[in-house]
Design a protein around this nucleic acid. Structure first.
Lengths: 238, 238
DNA sequence: TCCGTTGTGTTAGAGCCTATAACAATCAAG
DNA sequence: CTTGATTGTTATAGGCTCTAACACAACGGA
């Protein structure tokens, strides 16, 4: 830790707020190690003590940087939420105006699941009831949801108001599969998660896709499979 | 603990396997306290030490009954799985031959969500990736899934083979909503979980309900919203 | 009835953790 | 150069899991 200080001093950068920069650097280092521990054994494996040891620092030193373990975890939650948001935004932007909306939806859904599979513990961290000390959960989740909503709404060409509930339902369907997949439920019962997810997304897309091609506007604008009055039997042809 | 022994001896029940019965009793007591701790602060709150203290026994005594903390947790998982299974079976049996299949489906779905809301931490315990020591997860989850599948299959009048994937998808949709609800996501974004869930189930029911009333058997037997060839535009009337 | 086996409880202790307190050293700036 | 803020250290308290060594009660056969 002292070495870093000296090397930084040697390079002769601007002295102002050097301490702050260093402080921020240490906080990042701590989070980096915490992320490794998280990836290895889940949230309960994260230990300030072990992190300190790995950074070559004696235990309580890190309490200068994080008031307690929960504060570190909350930081990880916020970072994870940002990361997921960026991944989704990136996927959404990547297929912005190029392809058909169905394809955009497919890619967005794929990005969602892929992020979860790449960072299972962080995903778990995001959408888990943190009953003991729920500090920074409500707000990030709500914002993450909104961020997920926007691309979906964009893909669905929805009107942002009544469609919110439908988009949440779409999100819930994606989350349901992803969550069970990460939990190992599908593996345990020998089910192909890839195919399952693909089929589900396909179903969602078709469900949506009826709308813009509806011949006459009977009242189908925001139907999306909600109740809204049934058309009686015979409205299906396969 | 000695008191119980003496009182039991005093009642003069059959001596054979008295020890076993007592042992089983203690194991149950331990689990009871563990369940309280679970309900209060989640799985990480469960502590053999604290349980021992609450039972008026000194710490390591409980290691005579549970090899380690994980064994206790696994027992809780298995119990939770049994409990959920019973709740679903009960709901399924309760509305067995009386009502229309749609109503049975509705009640089954309701029982599922209700159990999760009554035992949020146990539900969480069931469907969570237990990365550190996953002992008894794969099998219980698979069996719990089957148990959930059967009533759903029954409600759907499916033929148990090809329909498995569809039932898993239905289950995933229920789990998705329940999981996000327990995670507090809906509360954070001001969404009525009751309505959301009801709508989702209704959608599922309608989706299914087209089948038996399909006018001519075009190939609709196991369609359930899977890809299987699209009918082109105009197959929706609201 | 006696005695060995088995089961169950105890305390002691190692090793991990979180977190606080008291103290020392270093940096920043007047 | 002195002073105050920052950051590191060790010591300590208290919690946890789990093992070891020991004591005693219950069981069951001789």
């Amino acid at each position: 830790m002292d070495e870093e200080w000296r090397s930084v001093m040697a390079t002769g950068q601007r002295r102002s707020s050097m301490r702050e920069r260093f402080r921020e650097q240490v906080r990042e280092d701590v989070k980096a190690v915490a992320l490794e521990q998280l990836a290895e054994g889940g949230a309960q494996t994260i230990s300030l003590n072990a992190i300190a040891k790995r950074l070559g620092v004696s235990g309580p030193a890190l309490y200068r940087y994080y008031a307690n373990r929960d504060e570190l975890l909350n930081e990880l939650v916020i970072d994870a939420y940002h990361d997921l948001r960026d991944a989704l935004a990136s996927a959404s932007a990547g297929s912005a105006r190029v392809r058909r909306p169905e394809q955009r939806m497919r890619e967005l859904a794929h990005a969602y699941r892929q992020w979860a599979r790449e960072h299972p513990h962080r995903y778990e961290l995001l959408f888990r009831p943190p009953f003991p000390g729920y500090d920074a959960h409500a707000e990030p989740i709500a914002e993450a949801a909104s961020t997920l909503m926007l691309p979906v709404l964009d893909v669905l060409d929805g009107n942002e108001d009544d469609d919110v509930q439908y988009v949440v339902r779409v999100w819930s369907r994606m989350h349901g599969i992803v969550s069970l997949e990460l939990g190992g439920a599908y593996t345990a019962m020998d089910i192909d998660a890839d195919a399952l997810y693909a089929d589900e997304i396909q179903t969602i897309i078709e469900r949506y896709h009826r709308e813009p091609e509806a011949p006459d506007g009977v009242d189908v604008v925001v139907n999306h499979g909600e109740v809204r009055g049934r058309g009686g039997p015979g409205d299906s042809q396969g």
